[in-house]
């Protein structure tokens, strides 16, 4: 058997091309993207609202202004109570699981597409990069919307509890740690929420995408969801 021209190495695509393909995919899959993004938005909204609500509580306690509604004894104590810590941890877990789940689903239903792209000559790295870009964008936009909704929710709750005083003592910026319990401030919380949402979305999608990209295309295409 005679040897033809040796098989060359597949080229890496320029970044712009990946960006274009991933945005196109988000655009056409808009309905589905919105549902996935909504999962991220809800998780982050929950976390940010609980956290911000807590910060508002602390800020107003610090100011000497008590909540008009004291349902828990802890509210009178200084700083973050055990209940609040639990609430934040719980909301964090709900957020992590929720986002990981929606990203996993979104990638798993596209295994066949991953296999097909590999048949057409896509490199494993390209497939992963595509999902990384898509999920990073979804994660960031979803988390930003979620953080804003969460903050709005916490402000509305605060208004109910503290009235307009809320705006005089609103913990927008981090408090000086010497002045009392640690307070991050709402801006930092929003930022952390966005970063967390993005990281979770990227991990939640690129891990299964990487696994699918490593599979031989025949196996990826066989996978039924």
């Amino acid at each position: 058997m005679q040897q033809r021209t040796p098989i060359e190495e597949q080229i890496d695509l320029p970044f712009v091309e990946s960006l274009r393909i991933s945005f196109q995919s988000l655009k056409i899959r808009f309905g589905r993207s919105i549902i996935t993004t909504a999962g991220i938005t809800l998780g982050i909204a929950f976390l940010v609202s609980v956290w911000t609500n807590n910060e508002i509580g602390i800020a107003l306690q610090e100011s000497g202004r008590q909540s008009t509604i004291n349902t828990f004894e802890e509210t009178a104590e200084q700083g973050i109570s055990t209940k609040d810590i639990w609430l934040i941890i719980m909301s964090l877990i709900v957020c992590v699981v929720g986002i990981a789940n929606s990203m996993l689903m979104a990638v798993t239903e596209r295994f066949r597409e991953i296999g097909t792209m590999k048949c057409l000559g896509a490199l494993d790295g390209f497939v992963v990069r595509l999902f990384l870009l898509e999920s990073g964008f979804q994660g960031f936009s979803g988390a930003l919307i979620g953080a804003l909704i969460g903050t709005l929710g916490a402000v509305l709750l605060g208004l109910k509890d503290y009235g307009l005083d809320l705006f005089f003592y609103f913990p927008l910026l981090p408090a000086n740690p010497e002045d009392g319990p640690m307070q991050l401030g709402v801006i930092i919380i929003i930022l952390l929420g966005c970063i967390l949402g993005m990281i979770l979305a990227v991990i939640g999608s690129s891990f299964p995408a990487w696994r699918a990209a490593k599979l031989p295309p025949a196996e990826a295409m066989r996978t039924e969801v």
């Binding site: 098989i7 060359e8 048949c119 000559g121 295309p217």
Partner: peptide, 14 residues
């Protein structure tokens, strides 16, 4: 005996 990149190129071109 082909590398991953060669296999991708094979699927793409051949």
């Amino acid at each position: 005996q082909l590398s991953q990149k060669q296999i991708a190129a094979f699927r793409c071109h051949r």
